[in-house]
């Protein structure tokens, strides 16, 4: 089972980003996805910076992939997407159909999690256009992924979102700016104050979501560390671990050991718990509401009862 480091979804200061990837060079991940995917206003790093980071990681033996925007609105967004798609150094993850169009016929690509691949027909189409790997939408269950893999084209690699706060929605509106009574065009880049997102609770105190600029994420952290066997059986070849601001190296190590069979599922879950910024969830994987923690229900005496009445 291969491991990947997903694209950084938050807005961190330039030095923090450079430092993060300097460390990542020594982590046991096979693939690293780079680039800004959430908001085109985030410019601590330019494309050339990302490519420089990629070269360092490639030198450390990693497969490097550059990811495109999840949402394209303006001409400037399109230009950035084309610059990423046309880069000569690295493979590209396409996150919308404009990127697929730019890549098809030119280079093999990764079909990103925002392309809405819910069935084998769509996966076959993308494979014909040059996709060599696909990342399942977060909503798709283990059973659903297994069905798509079974009916889908041969030879395409399957990746799932295995660790991190789930990217659930994207908007034209910036909710971090809105929280600060600012508009997106004058947002003062306040995302940079929230390295793991801005917490949003219900009125009765349940930790529910986090705001990440135009993106909305789950507050709970999806973890499939205890599901690596079933993932392999479903045809998954790569687990995506989504960067968080602290303890990421440890998270990677736990997944590596668990994937290699050196760590029992229960021990993997136990070691991850203190590393997470919030409670764990795995509902989508089990065909349930995403917020649910089936692992917690089955294995802990006090599951996160506040998460689902």
């Amino acid at each position: 089972m291969k491991l990947s480091l997903g694209p950084l979804l938050y807005y961190w200061p330039r030095e923090a980003v450079l430092d993060f990837y300097r460390q990542a060079a020594s982590w046991p991940v096979d693939t690293v996805y780079l680039g800004e995917t959430v908001c085109s206003r985030r410019r601590e790093l330019k494309l050339s910076d990302w490519i420089a980071i990629g070269e360092a990681l490639a030198g450390a033996g990693k497969e490097v992939v550059l990811s495109t925007y999840e949402l394209i609105e303006s001409d400037a967004d399109l230009r950035t997407m084309h610059a990423v798609a046309a880069n000569a150094a690295f493979r590209v993850e396409a996150n919308d159909m404009a990127a697929v169009r730019a890549l098809s016929g030119n280079a093999p690509f990764v079909a990103g999690p925002f392309l809405n691949v819910y069935n084998a027909a769509t996966l076959s189409l993308l494979a014909e256009l040059g996709a060599v790997r696909w990342v399942a939408p977060v909503e798709l269950s283990r059973e659903g992924i297994a069905a798509v893999v079974a009916e889908g084209p041969a030879g395409i690699e399957t990746e799932v979102f295995a660790y991190g706060r789930l990217p659930l929605a994207v908007s034209a509106r910036c909710f971090t700016a809105r929280y600060n009574n600012l508009t997106k065009d004058h947002c003062e880049f306040r995302c940079i104050e929230h390295p793991d997102g801005l917490a949003l609770d219900t009125q009765d105190g349940q930790h529910f979501l986090v705001l990440n600029g135009v993106q909305t994420q789950s507050a709970a952290v999806q973890s499939l560390a205890s599901e690596i066997g079933p993932a392999r059986a479903a045809g998954v070849g790569m687990l995506r671990l989504s960067p968080q601001s602290t303890g990421m190296g440890e998270v990677v190590a736990v997944f590596r050991e668990a994937a290699d069979g050196a760590l029992a599922p229960h021990d993997a879950a136990r070691r991850l718990a203190p590393l997470m910024p919030a409670a764990a969830c795995d509902g989508y994987w089990h065909g349930k509401p995403g917020i649910v923690s089936e692992w917690g229900r089955a294995h802990e005496r006090a599951p996160h009862a506040e998460s689902h009445a």
């Binding site: 949402l71 809405n116 789930l166 659930l168 929605a169 994207v170 908007s171 509401p289 995403g290």
Partner: peptide, 19 residues
């Protein structure tokens, strides 16, 4: 509010979404 076709908030809470 969210981009249509790109919102899983409903399934996060209920298991069912537009997609």
């Amino acid at each position: 509010i969210m981009v249509e076709g790109r919102c899983a908030l409903s399934s996060y809470a209920t298991g069912e979404s537009p997609n």
